[in-house]
């Protein structure tokens, strides 16, 4: 399996990774390589700001296209990610697995949400 490094900041054109549109650019690149059977290594070198909105599109939606086992095999451990970025990544990945496993689950959470303390 061919290893392919992808530098997130280079794809986006800078270290500010905040928009969903930029996330789509990263996603499309990763998607193509995974489809081609390559192993992708995402590098977060020089990424200074990052949102979950960006990560949802960049990596979260991969879980709607590929099964988690395949992604675990074809995504190498991220490199140059600082602790906060690792926390964000893990949050988004775990959320994506749940979302695509049961996309209507949010509806079931509804009752609990609106029972919060009325002011």
């Amino acid at each position: 399996m061919k290893d392919v490094p992808i530098n997130v900041a280079q794809v986006v054109g800078g270290g500010i990774c905040v928009s969903a549109a930029d996330g789509h650019r990263v996603h499309d690149l990763v998607y193509d390589h995974i489809l081609a059977g390559h192993r992708v290594c995402l590098s977060f070198e020089s990424v200074t700001r990052m949102t979950t909105a960006f990560l949802n599109t960049a990596v979260g939606q991969l879980y709607g296209a590929f099964p988690p086992d395949r992604l675990r095999e074809q995504l190498a451990p991220p490199v140059c990610a600082d602790p906060r970025q690792l926390v964000q990544l893990k949050l988004v990945v775990d959320r994506a697995k749940v979302f695509f496993d049961n996309p209507v689950r949010a509806r079931a959470d509804f009752s609990q949400a609106i029972e919060s303390d009325d002011g």
């Binding site: 909105a53 939606q61 959320r95």
Partner: peptide, 13 residues
Amino acid sequence: YNTTRQGDVPGGL
């Protein structure tokens, strides 16, 4: 984790 988004992109974070 609640989101009104539907389709290919998860949300709610």
